[in-house]
């Protein structure tokens, strides 16, 4: 794949994060996440094509199953079961969110983090974008009150790290990647179970309704 295509994929990832910030519907968020995951899988597939290692193909497939199929499936079922069409509100309104997005993106591109994005000088722009996606995902988790959005935020954070690692040439051995993927899967299951339990206990997925524990 050409560098242009990679850039496009990364752009998609970045845009999905932005979209996650703005969307009001849970289903929109899930779709955005699937798109993002698909882009990641394509990136991974690309690295398989470049190296030609079969084990990488296996990892790519695993990622595809977990991220593109299973995760959205879980979320959709949760949404269906509990009728959660709309996401819980955010702390900041849309204009402010946009400003913050701009600020975070600028921060990720700042000169201060230059050594980080210059690991592979050729992928300089890509790494910056991946870094922005990471920070934006963090910002998403902070800004969103909905449990589902937070879970998606974490997953998208993880995606951004993976994509950063791929472009920085920091891939791990396939066995470890499989382990990571397994971890992620278990995590996903537990998180989904927790979400439904929370919905049962608190009647909503609004994390701010959890206020039993404070000092």
């Amino acid at each position: 794949m050409s560098i242009m295509a990679l850039r496009l994929l990364l752009g998609i990832i970045f845009l999905t994060v932005v979209f996650l910030h703005l969307t009001k519907k849970n289903s929109g968020a899930v779709i955005a996440y699937s798109v993002q995951s698909l882009a990641i899988v394509l990136v991974l597939f690309n690295s398989f094509l470049e190296t030609g290692r079969v084990s990488l193909l296996f990892v790519t497939l695993l990622a595809f199953v977990v991220k593109v199929i299973l995760a959205p499936l879980f979320f959709v079922r949760l949404i269906k079961k509990n009728g959660l069409r709309f996401s819980v509100s955010t702390y900041l309104n849309i204009p402010l969110t946009l400003i913050i997005i701009a600020a975070i993106t600028a921060m990720a591109h700042s000169q201060k983090l230059a050594p980080l994005v210059n690991i592979v000088p050729a992928n300089h722009a890509l790494l910056s974008l991946a870094l922005s996606a990471m920070f934006l995902s963090l910002g998403l988790i902070i800004n969103r009150k909905g449990a589902l959005s937070q879970i998606i935020g974490i997953l998208s954070f993880e995606n951004s790290i993976i994509v950063f690692a791929v472009f920085a040439g920091l891939e791990q051995s396939p066995a470890l990647q499989a382990g990571i993927m397994f971890d992620l899967f278990v995590w996903l299951v537990i998180a989904t179970v927790f979400m439904s339990m929370i919905y049962r206990h608190f009647g909503s997925l609004d994390v701010t309704s959890m206020r039993h524990l404070k000092d």
Partner: peptide
């Protein structure tokens, strides 16, 4: 439930940061 949720979310974020650092 609340405690477990916070535990899960915050630690996941923390560990992802740690993961990123490890990769570096």
């Amino acid at each position: 439930m609340e405690a477990a949720w916070k535990y899960l979310i915050i630690n996941s974020i923390g560990l992802l940061l740690g993961f990123f650092g490890t990769l570096l």
